[in-house]
Amino acid sequence: MSLATRSEHVTASLTRCPEVMVHPVDSTGHLLPLVDRADVIVIGPGLGQNAWSDQMLRAALATEKPLVLDADALNLIVEKSLFASLNRKNWICTPHPGEASRIMDKSVTELEADRFASVERLQQICGGSVVLKGAGSLVSAGEVVYLCDAGNPGMAVAGMGDVLSGICGALLAQGLSPENAARLAVFIHAKAADYVVKQQGEIGLIASDLFDAIPRVINSKYE
């Protein structure tokens, strides 16, 4: 796995996670060789909404490779009104209700009033596979809506969606379709959080607590 980030963030990234291959990227010229080598691109977490962010997003969107879009990638696409011209089949969009409300141009209250209808509408707008995160995360690729009945309220913390995006990307890289990658990622993510909560409780749960639990779920060490 490679992480493309601004040059001033490289040291902090390596200190936090030395296993990751971190690359300083200050322009699209630095990013394109990484894009060429990538099997899957996950973009959005930590991206920001500035000129650099816009350049990075447009470079990622220019490729035909599978994508996972989250956080500020979704916000920038909405801001630039790009969904209508993109609507790709080989990506996964993972909005939380706030991001989804901006995509749909509806209030969060309206969206949450009928989450099943909302995820179907989101899929029509975004294309590909869509995960509407929240209590009872939903996945739709256009024909069927899948409901995840795992997970817990402790997951409502910063960074939890970033972990989900990473799992989606990993499964896409292993050859799963966007629909199946999204479905399985949501399940693994929720079950890993349930495992952690079983060990320590919901209070104080943080996103990185899931790192040790995810392999347990994947390797069937936790049912």
Rank of each mutant, 00 (worst) to 15 (best):
188 I>K: 01
20 V>W: 04
25 V>G: 07
84 A>K: 15
197 V>P: 06
182 A>Q: 00
131 V>L: 03
20 V>S: 01
12 A>D: 03
78 V>Q: 11
186 V>M: 05
180 N>H: 13
207 A>F: 08
115 R>E: 05
4 A>H: 11
109 T>K: 14
2 S>A: 14
107 S>L: 08
98 G>Q: 11
83 F>L: 12
205 L>I: 08
136 G>M: 02
34 L>N: 07
129 S>I: 11
134 G>L: 01
4 A>D: 09
96 H>E: 05
29 G>H: 15
151 G>D: 02
96 H>M: 05
157 V>S: 03
199 Q>Y: 01
200 Q>M: 14
218 I>R: 04
34 L>P: 00
11 T>H: 07
75 N>E: 02
210 L>T: 04
204 G>S: 12
77 I>V: 06
215 P>C: 09
221 K>F: 10
51 A>I: 14
222 Y>C: 05
123 Q>D: 08
66 P>L: 03
165 S>T: 02
200 Q>N: 13
69 L>H: 05
26 D>T: 09
219 N>C: 06
204 G>L: 12
43 I>A: 10
129 S>N: 07
24 P>M: 11
11 T>L: 12
160 M>G: 03
5 T>P: 04
131 V>W: 00
118 S>F: 10
2 S>D: 15
37 R>K: 08
123 Q>S: 11
168 C>P: 01
51 A>C: 09
188 I>S: 07
202 E>Y: 06
71 A>Y: 04
165 S>H: 03
37 R>M: 04
206 I>H: 00
215 P>Y: 06
109 T>I: 14
75 N>P: 05
83 F>P: 00
211 F>L: 13
223 E>H: 14
133 K>E: 03
197 V>A: 08
28 T>Q: 14
21 M>Q: 05
151 G>A: 04
8 E>Q: 04
144 V>K: 08
67 L>D: 01
125 I>N: 04
57 L>W: 06
66 P>A: 03
106 K>I: 15
